[in-house]
């Protein structure tokens, strides 16, 4: 089978385009409802949404892992599903829960990913050492991944993603999964550096709105499978009519979830039953 050429870089204005994409899971759950979105080349787009809003599904469709029932997805001007062989050479996807070969050593996994993306051996090894220092993985790089903690596991997956030198990064919650503060800060620095590059596009699904405020060019607010609003922070503030609101407040205002009355309800309920619940548990199952 002919290997795809690695030289096909995205040239058009838009790096990622979604037109009226609808994705429905078996059982009727509509994860994406007629979503249209464009990500410009060189842009860092933050996709912000609540749990279950459809962020991961959106990114998986961009990555080609899920096929929507309707709509078109273009990556670098190429059809996502027809030209997948070429697209894979310049896109890198980090899932929210990455899966690595547990029997590999960390270094072997990074070498594998580097080889898959055609990074030259010397450059690959140099990058491995750099990312290992950056994410504090040097001491465990030659140990089996099965022995890693959750945070180390996620950091290794991060290192593998950025090792690829891709043109389009699709990152799903990279900052979660137990990575420590130094690694989180390093991640923010990497994202800032990528944002400043005109030939690199990043689509970043996140729940850390404060970090997204500082780093991203544009924001897309996702709620219940739909893009409620997207644009720069200034545009979103103008849309919401609140000039100095943070992203978290903007999300609430533009998705209709500004005030969450359930929180006080839950707290009241917890306070009322704080004493009763343990007694009930002991009565039912506390004795063997």
């Amino acid at each position: 089978m002919q290997e795809p050429s690695a030289a096909a870089a995205p040239a058009p204005e838009w790096a990622v385009e979604l037109y009226e994409v609808t994705k429905t899971y078996e059982g009727g759950k509509v994860a994406l409802d007629n979503v249209s979105l464009s990500v410009a080349r060189g842009e860092l787009l933050a996709v912000v949404g609540a749990n279950g809003a459809g962020k991961s599904t959106l990114l998986k469709c961009m990555a080609g892992l899920l096929r929507p029932q309707a709509g078109t997805i273009l990556v670098g001007g190429l059809d996502r599903y027809r030209d997948h062989l070429v697209i894979r050479t310049f896109t890198a996807y980090l899932p929210d829960q990455p899966n690595l070969f547990l029997h590999f050593r960390g270094r072997e996994h990074l070498q594998l990913i580097g080889d898959l993306y055609g990074v030259e051996k010397d450059e690959r090894d140099r990058r491995i050492e750099s990312f290992a220092r950056l994410f504090d993985l040097t001491e465990i790089l030659d140990k089996r991944i099965a022995t890693y903690s959750n945070g180390q596991y996620k950091k290794l997956a991060l290192a593998a993603t950025f090792l690829t030198n891709a043109r389009i990064y699709i990152l799903d919650d990279p900052e979660t999964g137990g990575i420590d503060p130094p690694a989180s800060a390093a991640l923010m620095e990497i994202l800032q550096a990528l944002r400043d590059r005109e030939d690199v596009t990043v689509v970043w699904a996140t729940q850390i709105v404060h970090g997204a405020e500082k780093v991203c060019n544009r924001v897309a607010l996702v709620d219940r499978g739909q893009i409620r609003a997207h644009g720069t922070l200034a545009e979103l503030r103008a849309l919401a009519g609140v000039p100095d609101a943070g992203l978290d407040r903007l999300f609430g205002l533009l998705t209709g979830k500004d005030k969450n009355p359930l929180v006080s309800e839950i707290l009241d309920s917890m306070a009322r039953h704080a004493e009763e619940a343990p007694r009930r548990v002991l009565r039912r199952g506390g004795r063997a």
Binding site: E3, G64, T89, T91, Y93, P98, N99
Partner: peptide, 15 residues
């Protein structure tokens, strides 16, 4: 196998 499923997004060849 989940690790191989994740490789679907990489340029890994079938071989």
């Amino acid at each position: 196998d989940p690790p191989l499923r994740d490789l679907a997004t990489t340029p890994a060849s079938p071989w």
